[in-house]
C-alpha cells in the first residue's frame, strides 16, 4: 500500500462520503441533560465544523451532531469520532481523545498497543495521516470541537 493509500484508507473515504452524525440536531436540554455547541475553524485552510453534544445526567454522551466543510480527512475524522463517542462516558471520551492525539503524534507508526488500538477502532485508520505533518490538524479539528462543546456544556465541570 502506498503512503497515499495508507492515508486515504477505504474507511476514511467511506466516512467522508457517508458521514455519521452529519446535520445539526436541535438540542433540547432538559431532564438533567447538558448540551453544548462549538464552532472550530482551521484558519490555514478554512476547514470548519460546528458540533453539538448532548450529555445525560449520568455523564454519558447521548448524541453528537455536526455540520462542516473541509477536506475528506477532517470530515471523515468528525464522522469516525461521532460513531466512537456516542454512548461513551466522559472518562472514556477523555481517554479516546488522548489516544487519538497520541496516534496523530506517532509519525505513521501507530500506538504499538493492541488494547488502545482496539479502543480507537476505525479511528486507527488515521495512522497514515500522521505521516503528513500538514494534515494532522485536519484529523484533530473534530476532536477539538468535541472537547470544546463538552466544556461549554458544563459536563466536564460536574463530572
Amino acid at each position: 500500500m502506498s503512503t497515499l493509500e495508507q492515508m486515504y484508507q477505504q474507511v476514511i473515504l467511506d466516512h467522508a462520503k457517508r458521514p455519521v452524525g452529519h446535520g445539526l440536531v436541535e438540542l433540547a436540554a432538559g431532564h438533567g441533560h447538558l448540551a453544548g455547541e462549538s464552532h472550530q475553524v482551521n484558519p490555514t485552510c478554512g476547514d470548519e465544523v460546528t458540533l453539538r453534544v448532548d450529555v445525560t445526567p449520568a455523564g454519558t454522551v447521548a448524541g453528537v451532531s455536526w455540520e462542516g466543510q473541509g477536506c475528506s480527512i477532517s470530515q471523515a475524522s468528525v464522522s469516525v469520532m461521532t460513531s466512537l463517542v456516542e454512548g461513551a462516558d466522559l472518562a472514556e471520551v477523555a481517554r479516546l481523545d488522548g489516544l487519538f492525539h497520541d496516534l496523530m503524534s506517532s509519525r505513521g507508526k501507530g500506538l504499538d498497543d493492541d488494547a488502545a488500538e482496539d479502543a480507537l477502532g476505525d479511528a486507527t485508520a488515521f495512522t497514515g495521516v500522521s505521516q503528513y505533518p500538514a494534515r494532522i490538524k485536519c484529523a484533530l479539528l473534530g476532536w477539538a470541537a468535541l472537547k470544546d462543546s463538552l466544556a461549554r456544556s458544563g459536563a466536564l465541570a460536574t463530572s
Binding site: 497515499l4 492515508m7 486515504y8 485552510c45 473541509g70 477536506c71 475528506s72 480527512i73 503528513y132 485536519c138
Partner: peptide, 8 residues
Amino acid sequence: VHAHDVGQ
C-alpha cells in the same frame, strides 16, 4: 473533492 485532497 476538497482542494487539500487534490493537493495531496
